[in-house]
Design a protein around this nucleic acid. Structure first.
Length: 846
RNA sequence: GCGGGCGUGGUGGAACUGGUAGACGCGCCAGACUCAAAAUCUGGUACCGCAAGGUGUGUCGGUUCGAUUCCGACCGCCCGCACCA
């Protein structure tokens, strides 16, 4: 029989599926719905192994659920706005639009080669004017609902490129492209009010029981809720100063008040204080890199002001400016309690401030307890604190809070680490913000009927700065309110906005409104979402926020977009280098565990396995593997061995092994002789047949369970076992062999769909596997009549015996005690105790 | 520093709610087929030992008839956050 020709076969079946539109999904029906979605790709140009892994996993789930009788939505689109297109446009003189759509065409072809069961009729790109038109509508609705506001923001400003830089684009304080020293500027920008949803975004995490615990914890930390007290100090100049604390209990241990260098009061004082100006400049020198912050010395500046202690007007605390107080958290001002906060302690020692312990551990003596170089942050009893003395930390917190609340000086508050989402980007390749700035009326929203605000056909990258800002024909318009001169907002939305609602758009990608509610109500939430862990915080949090905002606007009925979430690991490969630097895998030959250059056989150093990346040159193109071995091989590799959440290492040997298995299944099916017609059922006539049938049904049960639990590597192992069982039983009844082979084909179909179709046809079926139901197992068949019982003496394995299931313990015990190795191990000592776990194990204790 | 995760053969990894550790794959070894090679098939493969047997899931201890699994301490690696008051 001829070898399986993957290339021909895959092309053939992809054509057949396409022609019959097998994966086109109706928006209704009697079947239960299942929405499986992989994070849509950025159209960088080519698909890479990470895509292959991600989309293979999603496709397995889609095909599996479809076979199980679900109406499956499995769409694909393109996260198509973003910086790489601008860079390509600038460097190669092409239009970002053309560049992007060409890349999409390439990548679509690449994805189709993988044989994904996608409903391509729903495809869209976020740079389609149809999509960003709807996004602009959403923006206006958010604006009207108060979810969008304009505020001042500190930004990284590149004075040469005349643009705002993301934090990642600032390298050693300089712009990544221009190399110019980046300035901090205050700009008026658009914000999404995500903090208004902080509480519900946090609380709802507990309901996401099909999300990885890790992702939920990361989001929880990111939102960063802390309960505390906000209260006022009265300063020596009569002004009031708000501070936030989570430790009001330590108020009697206060020895100073500290302001952030960015605090308005600091700024105010600096106007007349040159030294303070110098100090602020000094603070700003400290970089934002982790290592620097770690090492940064605590710096302080005494403003000369003092603050009255809230419980004792005569007790004046010095007001300092301190470099470790952040403007972005709380109120940007704190009271310092050195004994119970490490930062405050370091600061106090440096500036000679008092250190008074006010919380004493219960096993320490109140009179002698002192704080050394480490602040005491544990539990204990209050001391040196007048009316708080003797209370626990919790009691004291409550007491201070209620006293300050009573006098109107303070209030219990909840603080979040989460900041509002700044969405303005000074970039031309994004969704234009549909707002207008009028000389007379100020900021004005466009009317919905004025939409879409289309990007100009030609974007001029020849000069620095934002091209939209220079395109006067585009920029200048009349005010929608007064008809006077006005100009468009020349900023575009952060591309994270584009990916925050695309899953809802797939439900009806050409709806006249952002979301077709009926379709969305049918399909949402996404039942299984799959993507990289790198999106654990931002993308998932933004999408959750959008969903809640859309829900509040009545656009959709759900408030959480993704019922199930799965984060897959990266694809890695060995790295190679010689004296000249990194070398690509196809320039290398490996012999006996060592690597050499192909061209001159010079030795090459084999480095660690790293995530495939252009910089390390350890990239293998999926297309190359598909053309050598076929899509089913690469798919099988992606699912084998390594659990899906972990990083997988691509190896040539592994790929060859997968390819051999493809051939092996084909051989098993195509060389099977004397099989009865499809549909023939017959009871097994001998033990070999019975055992094979049992193997098949065990595999059905196990693979079904493993796929449902996304344990692809275990499902793969089950299929190897089933194929081994078939190989080992060539003499089994023909009807049983057919049953086992059919199980093998159907169970492997989600993972190797082309091969499965070819085998299914070879087994005499006319229907497509893609429209054939998932097999079910007979529970009675997977229970064996016999079990092996390990016999232990003192917990050590000495023998094992086969028993009939359900044999009484006494019988098992009797037989065990008669065994030669058991007698030897007991050495004549009578057993003290015998533990028998029915049908499981027997342990004899001496 | 805080939060989370993980340590199992040469290797990727299995082991359900504590019950024969190493399933399955890769690699390797031997054999068959072949003039030869590839492909394929058969057998073997944790470690020590000829064997009987002993040892073994990062280290040390605990609970248990029995621990990769539960508890405590430590060591190592990885990820996230980070002067968050």
């Amino acid at each position: 029989m001829a070898r399986y020709n993957a290339k021909e076969s895959e092309k053939h079946w992809q054509g057949e599926w396409d022609q019959r539109a097998l994966f086109k999904t109706p928006d209704h029906g009697t079947k239960p719905k299942y929405y499986v979605l992989e994070m849509f790709p950025y159209p960088s140009g080519r698909i890479h192994m990470g895509h292959a892994r991600n989309y293979t996993m999603g496709d397995v789930i889609a095909r599996f659920r479809r076979a199980q009788g679900y109406n499956v939505l499995h769409p694909m689109g393109w996260d198509a706005f973003g910086l790489p297109a601008e860079n390509a446009a600038r460097d190669k003189g092409v239009s970002p639009r053309d560049w992007t759509y060409e890349n999409i065409a390439h990548m679509r072809e690449g994805l189709k080669m993988l044989g994904l069961s996608i409903d391509w009729s729903r495809e869209f790109a976020t740079c389609d004017s149809e999509y960003y038109h709807q996004q602009q509508k959403l923006f206006l609705q958010f604006y009207k609902a108060g979810f969008v506001y304009r505020g001042e923001a500190d930004v990284n400003w590149d004075p040469v490129d005349q643009t705002v830089l993301a934090n990642e684009q600032v390298i050693d304080g300089r712009g990544w492209r221009s190399g110019a020293a980046v300035e901090r500027r205050k700009l008026s920008q658009w914000f999404f009010k995500i903090t208004a949803f902080a509480e519900e975004l946090l609380n709802a995490l507990d309901t996401l029981d099909k999300w990885p615990e890790k992702v939920r914890i990361m989001q929880k930390n990111w939102i960063g809720r802390s309960e505390g007290l906000k209260f006022q100090f009265t300063l020596s100049d009569g002004e009031k100063l708000d501070v936030f604390t989570t430790r009001p209990d330590t108020l009697f241990g206060a020895s100073f008040v500290a302001l952030s260098p960015d605090h308005p009061l600091t700024q105010e004082l600096a106007k007349t204080d040159l030294k303070l100006q110098d100090f602020i400049a000094e603070c700003r020198k400290t970089g934002t890199a982790e290592a620097e912050i770690e090492k940064a010395e605590k710096l302080g500046y005494d403003t000369g002001l003092t603050a009255a202690h809230p419980f004792d007007p005569n007790w004046q605390l010095p007001v300092m400016v301190a470099n470790f107080v952040l403007m972005g958290y709380g109120t940007g001002a704190i009271f310092g309690c050195p004994a119970h906060d490490q930062r405050d302690l370091d600061f106090a020692y440096k500036y000679g401030l008092s250190v008074v312990p006010v919380v004493v551990p219960s096993d320490a003596d109140v009179k002698t307890f002192a704080v050394g170089t480490e602040a005491y942050v544990g539990p204990g009893k209050l001391a040196n604190s007048k009316f708080l003395d003797g209370m626990t930390v919790e009691e004291a917190k409550a007491e201070v809070a209620s006293r300050l609340e009573k006098t109107g000086v303070g209030e219990r508050t909840v603080n979040y680490r989460l900041r509002d989402w700044l969405v303005s980007r000074q970039r031309p390749w994004g969704c234009p913000i549909p707002m207008v700035h009028c000389v007379k009326c100020g900021v004005v929203a466009l009317k919905e009927s004025d939409l879409p605000v289309l990007l100009p056909d030609k974007i001029d990258f020849s000069k620095s700065g934002n091209p939209l800002d220079r395109d006067l024909a585009w920029k200048n318009i009349t005010c929608p309110t007064c008809g006077g001169p006005a100009h468009r907002d020349t900023d575009t939305l952060d591309t994270f906005a584009d990916s925050s609602w695309y899953f809802a758009r797939f439900c009806d990608p050409h709806a006249q409104d952002p979301v077709n509610k009926a379709a969305a109500d049918y399909w949402l939430p996404v039942d299984q979402y799959i993507g990289g862990i790198e999106h654990a915080i931002l993308h998932l949090l933004y999408a959750r926020f959008f969903t809640r905002a859309m829900h509040k606007l009545g656009l959709i009925s759900i408030s959480e977009p993704f019922a199930g979430m799965f984060t897959q690991g990266m694809v890695c490969h060995e790295t190679y280098r010689d004296a000249d630097g990194w070398i690509t895998p196809d320039e290398v030959v490996k012999e006996g565990g060592k690597a050499y250059r192909k061209d001159n056989h010079a030795p090459v150093e084999i480095g660690s396995s790293e995530k495939m990346s252009k910089s390390k040159k350890n990239v293998i193109a999926p297309e190359a593997i598909i053309s050598d071995y076929g899509a089913d091989t690469i798919r099988w590799f992606m699912l084998s061995d390594t659990p899906p959440e972990r990083d997988i290492e691509w190896t040539d040997a592994g790929a060859e092994g997968c390819w051999r298995f493809v051939q092996r299944i084909w051989r098993l099916v195509s060389e099977a002789e004397g099989l009865p017609a499809p549909g023939t059922k017959a009871a097994p006539t001998d033990d070999v047949s019975k055992a094979l049938r049992q193997s098949a049904h065990k595999a059905i049960a196990a693979v079904t369970e493993d796929l449902a639990g996304l344990r692809f590597n275990r499902a793969v192992a089950q299929l190897y076992m089933l194929s081994n069982a078939i190989t080992d039983a060539p003499k089994a009844d023909a009807a049983v062999r057919r049953e086992a082979l059919e199980a093998l084909v159907l169970l492997s179909a989600p993972m190797m769909p082309h091969l499965a179709e070819e085998c299914w046809r070879a087994l005499g079926h006319q229907a497509f596997v893609a429209e054939t139901s998932w097999p079910t197992h007979d529970p009675a068949l997977i229970v064996s009549d016999f079990v092996m019982i390990p016999i232990q003496v003192n917990g050590k394995l000495r023998a094992s015996i086969q028993i009939t299931r359900g044999t009484p313990g006494e019988t098992v015990q009797e037989r065990a005690l008669a065994l030669e190795p058991v007698i030897r191990a007991l050495n004549g000592v009578p057993p003290k105790k015998i533990v028998y776990v029915s049908n499981r194990i027997l342990n004899i204790v001496v």
